[in-house]
Amino acid sequence: MKFGIMVNEGPYTHEASDTAYHFTKAALEAGHEIFRVFFYHDGVNNATRYTVPPQDDRNIQVRWSELAEKHNLDLVVCIAAAQRRGILDENEAKRQGKDGDNIAPGFRISGLGQLIEAGIQCDRLVVFGD
């Protein structure tokens, strides 16, 4: 089956991103296709490469980036939600006149249409949030 995943909470405060990660990994291992993972609301905060969790804890951002690299996942961060919360890629940083970007490898910034498209294309859209 073709799955779309929506992640609506940031890392560490809420379990949503963890659950979404475990679900996505399990779906891939079962041979399903993950069409896209869409990050919305505070979920965009999963995409900053500047997180430095303690050594003995999981690194939620790195975990997503690694899963994306291994399975060629499309991790999409909502541009409007990202702008509000200071998640920038190189182009956005330039466009907004900011002195640096912070997006992590494997993530890309795009519009909400990407979420709707996932809803249309996928057999199931599973939402993880608060």
Partner: peptide, 13 residues
């Protein structure tokens, strides 16, 4: 608010 933003974008589809 952010739900409403999805609805408005989604309406174009």
């Amino acid at each position: 608010l952010e739900s409403l933003e999805v609805v408005l974008i989604g309406a174009a589809f």
